[in-house]
């Protein structure tokens, strides 16, 4: 028993050496990590743009003056946005990725690109709800005060409501970034060459899966810890300006 443990520990070094150092394999991990981060960033930008548009459409629709004839274009847009968030939030990320790859874009070779599209559109639905929640968290009196001064809806949003909502949105947006970063690992399943893809390839080639998988788990963890730390710092700074 003890002998077995010592033996196992003894081989640990060489196993990790094989998985990371032999044949310059560490370069592959770095390459994979690069793609993972790249996907995260592009998908996040996509998600934020989509999310803000959807949130503004939905908020504008809900805040129309009662009694006045509803804007039909806004009603249609709102309906589309509602379907979008319902479908995306109601189906698994994995299933969405499979549909993007094999049903909608079977001809696109670059699976990373398909992954970005899938992740970005998925993230947009969540960001939309985050932003909408942020907009609603601003006291209704702020909108009323802006409007009572003769400012239009868009001006009031732009100068008064959105800057205040931003503060409430940032922490949740940080969480969304972390989720998105981890969800990029699913892209491996559709053949995207990111971190998990390289880890499993190396595991297959060396007939030893433990070191690469534990290795990338540590990499994901380190990056998430750093992101969380940055998020906390940002929140503290924002709270300071409240006490101004």
């Amino acid at each position: 028993m003890l002998h077995g443990l010592i033996n196992w520990l003894d081989k640990l070094g060489p196993r990790f050496y094989t998985a990371f150092m032999e044949a310059d394999r560490w370069k592959l991990y770095l390459q994979g990590l690069g793609r993972t981060l790249e996907m995260t960033l592009v998908a996040l930008v996509m998600g934020v743009i989509l999310g803000v548009v959807v949130a503004v459409v939905r908020a504008a629709h809900d805040q129309q003056r009662a009694g006045r004839r509803k804007n039909p274009l806004l009603a249609i847009l709102n309906f589309i946005c509602k379907i979008y968030t319902t479908v995306i939030r109601g189906t698994p990320m994995m299933v969405q990725l499979l549909i993007w790859t094999f049903v909608i874009f079977p001809s696109i070779r670059d699976k990373i690109l398909v992954g970005i599209i899938g992740l970005g559109i998925n993230s947009g639905a969540y960001v939309a709800e985050i932003v909408r929640g942020g907009l609603m968290s601003v006291d209704g009196g702020q909108m009323e005060a802006g409007r009572s001064l003769g400012l239009g809806y868009l001006d009031t949003m732009r100068f008064i409501v959105v800057p205040q909502a931003f503060k409430n949105i940032l922490p949740s947006l940080g969480n969304e970034l972390i989720t998105l970063f981890k969800d990029t690992s699913l892209v491996q399943a559709i053949g995207g060459m990111e971190l998990v893809y390289y880890a499993s390839t190396i595991g297959g080639r060396t007939f030893d899966y433990m070191p690469p998988y534990i290795g990338i788990a540590v990499m994901y963890l380190c990056i998430v810890v750093v992101l969380t730390w940055l998020q906390g710092k940002l929140e503290r700074r924002l709270r300071q300006s409240d006490r101004r």
Binding site: G141, S148, L149, L151, F159, P163
Partner: peptide, 30 residues
């Protein structure tokens, strides 16, 4: 209505000043 409201000032029970800007900006924005 935006045009009309420019000629009607309103003061609220809870002030509703804009906390994200200075007093000067609060006054000059509109």
């Amino acid at each position: 209505i935006d045009q009309v409201r420019q000629h009607m000032g309103m003061v609220f029970q809870h002030f509703n000043l804009f906390p994200n800007m200075t007093i000067r900006k609060n006054i000059t924005l509109a």
